Amino acid sequence: MTYKAILNGKTLKGETTTEAVDAATAEKVFKQYANDNGVDGEWTYDDATKTFTVTE
């Protein structure tokens, strides 16, 4: 399944996708990606669109 992350960081804005077996696995991948890029904020998840959003 393909999951998407939308990054609304102070220094990084954009989107990325990952293939994962479930939302929990995708969330770990996206949170690591955000952390590696200095983005730390509030996370939300929309199951209907399989989209995570982080906003700083």
Rank of each mutant, 00 (worst) to 15 (best):
A5V: 15
K28R: 12
G14W: 15
T51N: 01
Y33N: 02
D22E: 04
G9Q: 04
K28M: 12
T2I: 14
F30Y: 01
L12H: 13
A24R: 11
T16P: 03
A48Y: 10
D40S: 13
Y3I: 03
E27L: 15
E56P: 07
E27K: 11
Y45R: 00
G9R: 03
T49H: 05
A34G: 03
E56F: 09
V21D: 11
D22S: 07
T49R: 06
T16H: 12
M1E: 12
D47E: 14
T18V: 14
G41Q: 02
V54P: 00
N37F: 14
T51E: 03
A48F: 10
W43E: 00
Y45D: 01
T51C: 04
A48E: 13
G9A: 07
D46V: 05
A26R: 01
G41K: 01
T16R: 11
T44H: 10
M1H: 14
L7R: 00
Q32G: 06
T18H: 06
T11N: 13
K13C: 14
Y3P: 03
E42A: 10
W43C: 03
A48S: 11
G38P: 00
N35Q: 15
M1G: 12
V29D: 04
A23F: 12
N35P: 00
K10D: 06
T55H: 08
A24H: 09
A26F: 01
K31S: 04
W43S: 01
G14E: 10
T25D: 09
F52R: 00
G9I: 07
K31V: 06
V29C: 08
A24V: 10
G38W: 08
G38H: 09
Y33P: 00
E56A: 08
T25W: 07
K4T: 12
K4S: 06
A48W: 07
F30P: 00
D40F: 15
L7Q: 00
A24E: 12
K50E: 01
E56C: 07
N35K: 15
D40I: 14
N37L: 15
T11Q: 10
A26I: 01
D40N: 13
D40H: 14
T44W: 07
E56N: 05
Y45M: 00
K31F: 06
K28P: 02
A23R: 12
E42M: 12
A5I: 15
N8D: 10
L7G: 02
T18P: 01
D46A: 04
F30K: 00
L7I: 15
D40P: 04
G41E: 00
E15T: 13
D46R: 03
K13Y: 12
A20E: 04
G9P: 03
K31L: 07
K10F: 12
G41A: 04
I6A: 04
A48P: 07
K31R: 15
A23Y: 13
T53E: 05
V29T: 09
Q32D: 06
K31N: 03
Y3S: 03
K50S: 05
K13E: 05
F52A: 01
N35T: 14
A24I: 11
W43V: 03
T49F: 05
T16K: 10
F52S: 00
L7E: 02
F30M: 02
T55F: 08
T11Y: 14
V29R: 09
Y45S: 02
I6W: 04
F52G: 00
K10Q: 11
A5Q: 02
A34D: 00
A23C: 13
E42G: 05
